[in-house]
Amino acid sequence: MRFAALFAAASLAISGVAGTPFTARDASTSDSDSTVSVNVNAVLGSDLSAANFYGAPYPPWHPRGNPGWYFGDHGYLYPHLPCLEGLLCAILRLLPLNFLHCPVKPPPKPPVNDGFTPTFRNLTGATQAGDYLTFGLVDTVAQCKAMCKEVQNCKFVNTYHDVNGKGGSTQLTCSLFSSCHDASDAINKGGQSQPDGSINYIRDSDGYCRK
């Protein structure tokens, strides 16, 4: 009952979070008492289901849009986001595919033929489209591509720097979509007022279609 016990303990420790109960079973035993029903969102501390756009229900061009997760090597910089590493990844692996799963971190120099084709590069606008799936923060383009491979129906990634936006992050924004897009859809130019009075803008926007 290793993970079943972990789920139960986490559910008791975190209160006041709404969510859908999920039945978790420890595959290492056939005992009937090895199955427990828990509040998944309470365990995760966030709703990382597809129904909630994997933690980012508002897209990046929406005034209320905030990253739903962080995937990279500097999780300590983002204590307010679910960082896809360690114990959290072990828990997510127990959940069905309609929850976010942690990808394998790509090597420092990923292969040129990585399964993605560039559709635009170095624009000052980010993709804005109705087939939005989720968005978060990453350190590299390769990490964003790795995220796409773990999100159902993901066919396109858009990475860019949201200067002055989204909490002032210096990391890349990683937006995922279910259809491929070209430069004609890179219409999110920023222009949103921030709490400190600054205006955000987009730079280094790249798009990649998954083969």
Rank of each mutant, 00 (worst) to 15 (best):
P106M: 04
A146W: 02
C148T: 06
C102P: 08
G136W: 00
L100W: 00
Q152M: 12
V157H: 00
N113K: 12
F116H: 03
N122S: 15
P106E: 05
G115Y: 01
D131R: 06
D114N: 15
T117H: 11
P110F: 04
V151E: 01
T117Q: 14
F99A: 09
V104W: 00
N153P: 00
L133N: 06
P103T: 01
A129E: 07
Q128T: 06
F120W: 14
E150G: 01
V104Q: 15
M147R: 00
T159K: 09
V104N: 13
V104S: 15
T117N: 12
K155Y: 00
C148K: 03
G125S: 10
V138M: 04
Q128S: 13
D114T: 04
P108D: 05
G115N: 02
F99W: 15
D114H: 01
V141K: 10
N122F: 09
Q128N: 09
D139G: 15
D162R: 11
P118D: 01
P106I: 04
V157G: 02
T124E: 11
Y160P: 05
F99E: 10
K105T: 11
C154L: 08
G125W: 03
F99T: 09
C102H: 02
V112P: 00
F156K: 11
K145E: 13
C102I: 06
K149H: 09
M147E: 01
V104T: 14
D139V: 03
P106H: 03
T159N: 14
V151P: 01
A126R: 01
V141S: 11
E150V: 14
Y160M: 09
F116C: 08
P106V: 06
L133I: 10
P108W: 03
F135G: 12
Q128P: 00
G136T: 06
F156P: 08
D162Q: 12
P106K: 04
H161Q: 12
G130Q: 10
N153H: 13
V141P: 04
P107M: 08
V141F: 00
T119H: 09
Q128A: 14
A146H: 00
P111T: 04
P107H: 02
N158G: 08
E150N: 10
L137A: 09
K109E: 13
Q152T: 15
N158A: 12
V163M: 10
P111R: 08
